Amino acid sequence: MDLKQINIGQLLENSVKENHIEIESLCSIFNCEAKDIEQMYNSDTLDTDILIKWSQLLQYDFFRLYSQHLVLYAPPSANRYNQIEIKKEVKSQEPQFRKNIYTKEIIEFIIRRINKGEMTREEIISKYRIPKTTLYKWLYKYNKYIEE
């Protein structure tokens, strides 16, 4: 799966086919017509309330795809950490998450890129801003479990 370009509609359609869900059932759940479901399949993006319904229906967290995209392609910059230290007194209303959240899928993605020769370890470290020690721990711990 290409996490750089997420086509959520296509992923939904594939998941519906895998789960053998009839379009009539979807129409009744979403209270819409078949053409509206087809429009969702052809859409690159969906509203969050609709995506929540899809996630509940298909029992898959489609939001995780976007979280993984952010971890891989929009890591926090070093300047942001300096700004946070300066503005410690100002409390943010946004929820605070752990600094780095690397899912199993992300770790497998990174290790496969190295194993296939698509990227070197240094390229992974610089492009995705993964700490060198973290990457080497992953390679030591998970490399034997991941097929090439």
Score class of each variant (00 low, 15 high):
residue 73 Y to T: 02
residue 17 K to Y: 08
residue 40 M to W: 10
residue 89 E to H: 14
residue 84 I to A: 11
residue 42 N to K: 07
residue 104 K to T: 04
residue 72 L to N: 00
residue 82 N to Y: 09
residue 124 I to W: 03
residue 122 E to W: 01
residue 24 E to H: 12
residue 66 Y to C: 11
residue 131 P to S: 03
residue 55 S to Q: 07
residue 54 W to Q: 06
residue 104 K to V: 10
residue 108 E to L: 06
residue 14 N to S: 10
residue 103 T to F: 09
residue 111 I to S: 02
residue 74 A to D: 10
residue 85 E to W: 01
residue 38 E to P: 10
residue 65 L to S: 09
residue 73 Y to P: 07
residue 43 S to L: 00
residue 83 Q to L: 15
residue 75 P to I: 09
residue 7 N to E: 06
residue 130 I to G: 09
residue 135 L to K: 00
residue 117 G to P: 06
residue 44 D to W: 14
residue 48 T to M: 09
residue 64 R to N: 15
residue 92 S to I: 10
residue 96 Q to S: 11
residue 85 E to Q: 09
residue 64 R to H: 15
residue 12 L to I: 02
residue 96 Q to W: 05
residue 4 K to H: 11
residue 136 Y to R: 07
residue 40 M to D: 00
residue 137 K to R: 08
residue 76 P to G: 15
residue 147 E to Q: 14
residue 67 S to M: 15
residue 86 I to A: 05
residue 74 A to H: 12
residue 125 I to H: 03
residue 12 L to S: 00
residue 112 R to Q: 04
residue 125 I to T: 08
residue 49 D to Y: 13
residue 124 I to V: 08
residue 72 L to H: 05
residue 27 C to Q: 04
residue 84 I to C: 01
residue 146 I to V: 05
residue 23 I to Y: 09
residue 5 Q to T: 03
residue 9 G to A: 06
residue 142 Y to D: 00
residue 139 L to D: 07
residue 14 N to Q: 13
residue 60 Y to V: 07
residue 135 L to A: 06
residue 38 E to T: 13
residue 48 T to Y: 13
residue 80 R to W: 14
residue 140 Y to F: 13
residue 147 E to F: 11
residue 127 K to L: 11
residue 136 Y to L: 12
residue 124 I to Q: 03
residue 69 H to Q: 03
residue 109 F to H: 08
residue 99 K to F: 04
residue 67 S to H: 15
residue 133 T to D: 14
residue 12 L to D: 01
residue 36 D to G: 02
residue 37 I to S: 05
residue 35 K to C: 06
residue 103 T to K: 01
residue 103 T to S: 00
residue 81 Y to S: 13
residue 53 K to V: 06
residue 39 Q to E: 13
residue 6 I to H: 05
residue 36 D to I: 03
residue 88 K to Q: 11
residue 3 L to E: 11
residue 56 Q to A: 12
residue 143 N to M: 01
residue 137 K to F: 12
residue 111 I to D: 02
residue 129 R to V: 05
residue 71 V to T: 10
residue 33 E to M: 05
residue 58 L to P: 09
residue 123 E to V: 01
residue 78 A to T: 10
residue 43 S to M: 08
residue 66 Y to K: 10
residue 89 E to Q: 14
residue 59 Q to T: 14
residue 75 P to T: 02
residue 110 I to W: 11
residue 39 Q to R: 15
residue 28 S to R: 14
residue 88 K to T: 08
residue 49 D to A: 14
residue 66 Y to E: 07
residue 68 Q to W: 03
residue 75 P to Y: 01
residue 43 S to P: 05
residue 13 E to W: 04
residue 45 T to A: 06
residue 103 T to I: 06
residue 50 I to N: 07
residue 61 D to T: 05
residue 34 A to I: 09
residue 124 I to E: 01
residue 77 S to F: 15
residue 58 L to G: 00
residue 54 W to E: 01
residue 35 K to L: 00
residue 71 V to F: 10
residue 31 N to T: 06
residue 11 L to Y: 09
residue 119 M to P: 09
residue 138 W to E: 04
residue 88 K to D: 04
residue 109 F to Y: 12
residue 2 D to P: 00
residue 64 R to I: 07
residue 137 K to L: 05
residue 111 I to Y: 00
residue 36 D to Y: 03
residue 108 E to Y: 09
residue 20 H to C: 14
residue 70 L to M: 07
residue 80 R to D: 04
